[in-house]
Design a protein around this nucleic acid. Structure first.
Lengths: 228, 228
DNA sequence: CGACACTTTGACGCACTTCAAAGGGGGTGG
DNA sequence: CCACCCCCTTTGAAGTGCGTCAAAGTGTCG
């Protein structure tokens, strides 16, 4: 059920920029994050952090895509979320990660020590508010994920496509970074059901599939009707 | 699929206690919440807040049980969470509620204005940290809920029972406050499947059902094995 | 006792899974 | 440049777990 992880190239690529210690109030959330952080790169399928590792950092994705997942004891994998450039991930309450994060494509990320985040949040009310807002958006995304999981296969796939479309600012076309297996594990379906559902959506002229990873929206309304 | 809401008794029972305005730093999270808040009561099945209502308050449950849910446009209902005494609910990022909250039993709650919460969080770093921690626990609970939804009916029901058991401090017996329909809508199953699964767990001697709402754990290990 | 809400049980059908095999498509080596 | 391989995706056929529809059982309150 779980495809073997090949192409496991771990390429930590440290680059400059130490955390700023003095209490300068940064002008924006993005700025503070980037001036405080360390930049790193990972190759496709590299593990960014693993289950049960200490959760020392918060991560901001600069380029590429990331999946956050958990392996159940019988080998099934649940993907909790996909992250795209600009997203912050690694937000976990416990001091250890309950989930693991992997690079779907080659990725560039900025990581910031949790302790530094907390220190800044304590000094800078506005920063704390924005941190809180990011957490809230994460909560909202999880809520929508739950709503997907109680629906039929067609509704899940349609909802997934619409979610991805809304996250990349692209009019009527998306290049999916993740495999069918990743989509299946996100939606709680099998790879075969995802594939069959996509072809059936193509047959009904809701989408076109010029390549297996590229989705062209031909009838967005049809998808939205499915997205109860 | 959705049971009709009868017994809809709305009994707002205002009682004393205005928000404290002066910047006293309370000694504990629970204290601050209770001194800042207004107490209210609701009857069984009363709506505490509804979808699309402005999200003005945070709520702390004193007694009884609450369900937070969303009705899909085709009439299906998804229960997002159940809350028990001591839990805080109503945490939503947007200024409007995306979900609605209802009393499962008669309930007593404390409500605190969101603006007051935010003001205190801005003054009191420790309070802010605790607010953040509560949000994090909510995130974690949602994550576990997602893990339940990808499993088989047996695993979902077993996981649900163990979750409820861990939340009420009771050795080997739980009195469920919610109906089979509520459980079904939480687990993404039908009422019939929940009922059948419970009887099958009883047949396999994992639990006993002295009444339909009371669960006695006879073989917790068997349930934990199902809880992948 | 009867009314009502909730729960349980039964029979059947269907959506999704499982198991199996046949396409692509992109890279490497001959 | 073609041939071959590997990985991913698609398609097919058969099985099954859960949903649907229907009806009977149970507990509670008047």
């Amino acid at each position: 059920m779980l495809s073997p992880m090949t192409n496991f190239s771990f390429t930590p690529n440290f680059s400059n920029k130490a955390p700023v210690a003095h209490p300068t109030i940064a002008h924006s959330w993005a700025d503070s994050f980037e001036t405080m952080g360390t930049s790193m790169s990972f190759g496709r399928n590299a593990e960014i952090y693993g289950e049960n590792e200490p959760a020392e950092y918060l991560y901001k994705l600069v380029s590429g895509s990331v999946r956050v997942s958990k392996i159940l004891n019988d080998g099934r994998r649940q993907i909790s979320a996909f992250y795209l450039p600009g997203d912050v991930f690694g937000l976990e309450i416990s001091s250890e990660h309950a989930l693991s994060a992997e690079a779907i494509t080659d990725v560039e990320i900025i990581l910031v020590k949790r302790s530094a985040i907390e220190a800044l949040a304590a000094r800078d009310t506005d920063f704390a508010r924005q941190l809180w807002a990011v957490t809230g958006r994460e909560l909202q995304r999880m809520q929508e994920h739950i709503l997907l999981l109680i629906k039929t296969a067609q509704e899940r796939v349609a909802g997934f496509l619409l979610e991805m479309a809304s996250r990349v600012k692209c009019a009527n076309e998306v290049e999916l970074p993740m495999s069918r297996q990743d989509i299946a594990d996100y939606l709680g379906l099998t790879i075969e059901t995802v594939s069959r559902t996509l072809t059936s959506l193509e047959d009904s002229a809701a989408i076109a599939l010029p390549t297996s990873r590229r989705i062209v929206f031909r009838n967005r309304m049809a998808l939205q009707r499915l997205n109860a």
